[in-house]
């Protein structure tokens, strides 16, 4: 049996943002995607710290792009979700949906 890695809320948000962005997932678009979808600003430092943690867990991999003048000669670091990361995201959705189902308090629009 493979070892399970539990995802925190922000880790799940970052993984979903990476999946939405596809090939163009580096710091700036990831942070903007989170802002657009969640309505809250994600500081780049927090995004990178989460990505580093996800990389250590083997859920995300990264590769360096070409350095550009606009970035002061610094390269972009592109991230993508690994097969393990995809499995974890699916598993988290399954568990959350299971917990969500049948809760009358959370059904409908009224609080």
């Amino acid at each position: 049996m493979s070892e399970r890695t539990h995802l925190g809320e922000f880790e799940l948000i970052v993984i979903l943002a990476l999946l939405r962005l596809g090939e163009n997932a580096y710091g700036v678009p990831i942070s903007r995607e989170i802002e657009r979808q969640c309505g809250r600003e994600a500081a780049l430092g927090s995004v990178y710290a989460t990505l580093e943690r996800l990389q250590k867990k083997g859920l995300v991999s990264s590769s360096l792009g070409e350095p550009t003048a606009e970035r002061g000669g610094r390269a972009k670091r592109y991230f993508r979700v690994t097969a393990k990361g995809l499995r974890e995201a699916r598993e988290t959705r399954r568990v959350l949906t299971k917990l969500w189902n049948g809760l009358r308090e959370l059904e409908g629009q009224r609080a």
Partner: peptide, 9 residues
Amino acid sequence: EALAGDLLE
């Protein structure tokens, strides 16, 4: 380095 580049961008 990637973070510094992102901030500059």
